[in-house]
């Protein structure tokens, strides 16, 4: 079968790409570590330079893991949202998750400066606040999804919640101090470096459970993509299904935003790339393909953001958009249309 051999080829290409980019991501950075050190580290775990060893273990490897998790989480949650809403513009943040996380972060950063709650301004505080914020929006959306069947209404409500929450964030920004404002803006630019080893303990299980849920929903997602009535006439409980898919999306997008800030573009673009290259709407293929493609692309963005050879780092979000959008525009122009 031609389809099958193409899929095998694409999957092997993606796996090789992820492995290669992972190696590059660990090796390149502001501090250059000699190549021989890597060989030694990967063969017998020894390291000549203690500083380099610490950079690798405490910074670069956690960042690599966080890139892999964030890329796959955003891609898969975007895929789920595009299918459920049957809308090519949907993405992981369509339900207002990132707005919720932003509000949480804004509250601790601005609040910390305004009320002198310095303990909240810490890194852990930011992550917790983002988690609580996205959880708050998630609860709102989930409760609405159990009452309202019409998918367009849900989409509009999700966007309304997001806008309302953003408005509160703007207010906070308006009254925030200059330092806290700067910290907040930097948070919104996205960064993979904020996740330390301690945080991975929470991040890894969250993303893995979200991805497993998505993979578990491959068949119902296929049918939902065809049309809600088809899903219902095949015996699926569509409201319950949507609730669970929203839950999976919120866990993936919420945790990723909490740990890395709102990372743009990946969640909307990767599902389109995957559908076009694998030429299928079968989620049993799209979910693993999105995991690999999302991870690969975010790794590439991170490598570019490090500006290899220089000591500077530029915002991840800018790289993702600047690099990704031309690719997407090219693909859209070539195939004349993007659809679910």
């Amino acid at each position: 079968m031609r389809d099958r051999s193409r899929n095998t080829f694409l999957f092997s290409l993606l796996i090789m790409g992820v492995v290669l980019l992972s190696l590059l991501d660990v090796m390149l950075g502001s501090v250059s570590i000699p190549f021989s050190d890597f060989i030694a580290f990967f063969t017998d775990g020894s390291f000549t330079d203690e500083t380099n060893r610490s950079i690798l273990l405490n910074f670069r490897i956690p960042k690599l893991v966080s890139a892999l998790l964030a890329g796959s989480a955003l891609a898969v949650s975007g895929l789920q949202m595009q299918t459920v809403f049957r809308n090519p513009l949907a993405g992981p943040y369509i339900l207002g998750i990132s707005s919720g996380a932003s509000l949480g972060v804004a509250i601790v950063l601005m609040g910390a400066s305004a009320f002198g709650w310095t303990f909240l301004g810490s890194k852990v505080g930011v992550v917790l606040a983002a988690l609580v914020g996205s959880f708050f929006v998630l609860m709102l959306i989930l409760s609405v999804s159990l009452r309202i069947r019409d998918i367009t209404t849900l989409l509009i409500l999700g966007m309304m919640f997001g806008t309302a929450v953003s408005a509160v964030t703007s207010l906070l920004q308006y009254f925030g101090s200059e330092t806290s404002l700067r910290n907040f803006v930097i948070w919104t630019m996205g960064s993979l470096g904020g996740v330390g080893r301690e945080q991975l303990v929470l991040y890894i299980p969250l993303v893995i459970s979200g991805l497993l849920m998505a993979w578990f929903f491959a068949r119902p997602l296929n049918v939902l993509g065809i049309g809600e009535l088809y899903a219902r006439s095949l015996g699926y409980n569509v409201k319950r299904l949507r609730f669970l898919i929203f839950l999976s999306t919120s866990i993936l997008a919420g945790a990723t935003t909490a740990f890395n800030g709102p990372i743009a573009f990946i969640g909307i673009a990767v599902p389109h790339l995957v559908r076009m290259s694998f030429r299928t709407s079968n989620h049993a293929i799209l979910v693993p393909a999105s995991i690999l493609t999302g991870a690969a692309i975010l790794l590439l963005c991170d490598i570019i953001a490090q500006l290899p050879g220089s000591a500077m780092v530029i915002p991840l979000n800018s790289v993702a958009s600047l690099m990704g959008i031309p690719v997407v525009v090219y693909i859209v122009l070539r195939s004349k249309r993007v659809s679910i």
């Binding site: 993509g225 049309g227 009535l229 088809y230 015996g235 409980n237 559908r275 709407s281 079968n282």
Partner: peptide
């Protein structure tokens, strides 16, 4: 729900729609 789906198949008036689903994959569902 599952037993009912084995008793009655319902084809709604709105046509099935999916950009990258071929006839075979569709009928497999």
């Amino acid at each position: 729900g599952n037993d009912f789906a084995r008793l009655v198949s319902f084809i709604p008036s709105e046509p099935a729609h999916a950009s990258h689903t071929n006839v075979y994959e569709f009928v497999c569902m």
